[in-house]
């Protein structure tokens, strides 16, 4: 299985993602944001970081970079595109997934482990995943998911909410919402569910000596689903 990770100026989780993808069997290529063509890939990842210094709005400038037209075409033709953290912010700025990510409600940069409830068991990202609740890491200043009421209705009607912040038992309540996101939303799909944006970093949870292993579950399952 082939994957591609896009590096923007200011990306800083691109190499972690490369390590994670390779660890679980992907043949990964790093792609520079000024490239025009994507290499042949089964999965394209927009990594975390601070592309363009988070200037103007997080992800806004990266969403207009040269490679993104190819990424958008790839997504529109059904290709799997996953945006993590800043990658999620870039995805919302392209319009591939609905909504926006605002400044965290309490104005703090949040860096901690959280639990997320997997709502979706149909998409290629989460199909067959054993656990309903995953412990993943978040590190962001703008992760407060927001959309209009009309968009929210559409997202919910189409079951586009991929994961919600919850407690270790999978309870989705306000007190387990780290950043003020509407309905504890931590990750969403596009309508077709081939594009996934999420704030938590699965690539940070793949090494039992450093972290939990719920990221490993995610990647193992992901490559099996794509095969």
């Amino acid at each position: 299985m082939k994957s591609a990770v896009i590096t923007f100026p200011g990306s800083n989780c691109d190499r972690d993602m490369d390590v994670a993808l390779k660890k679980f069997g992907f043949k990964n290529k790093m792609v520079w944001h000024q490239d025009i063509e994507l290499p042949k890939s089964d999965l394209v990842v927009l990594p975390g970081g601070f592309s363009y210094g988070d200037y103007l709005r997080c992800g806004s400038m990266a969403s207009k970079s040269k490679i993104m037209q190819s990424v958008i075409n790839f997504a529109n033709s059904g290709g799997m595109v996953m945006g993590i953290c800043n990658g999620f912010q870039i995805l919302v700025e392209t319009g591939l997934v609905p909504g926006v990510l605002l400044r965290n409600k309490y104005l703090e940069f949040i860096c901690k482990n959280v639990f997320v409830k997997v709502n979706d068991k149909d998409s290629a990202y989460f199909k067959n995943i054993k656990n309903d609740v995953l412990e993943l890491h978040i590190a962001h200043n703008e992760g407060n998911y927001f959309c209009t009421n009309d968009q929210l209705k559409e997202i919910e009607d189409n079951a586009q909410v991929a994961i919600n912040y919850c407690n270790n038992e999978g309870k989705i309540e306000k007190s387990f919402n780290p950043n003020g996101s509407i309905k504890n939303i931590a990750g969403i799909f596009n309508k077709e569910k081939n594009v996934l944006g999420m704030m938590p970093h699965p690539e940070r949870m793949i090494d039992p000596s450093l972290s939990g292993e719920d990221g490993s579950l995610f990647f193992k399952n992901l490559i099996n689903n794509i095969k």
Partner: peptide, 9 residues
Amino acid sequence: KKLLANLVI
């Protein structure tokens, strides 16, 4: 429309 503002918000 294209860059300076995000019309969702």
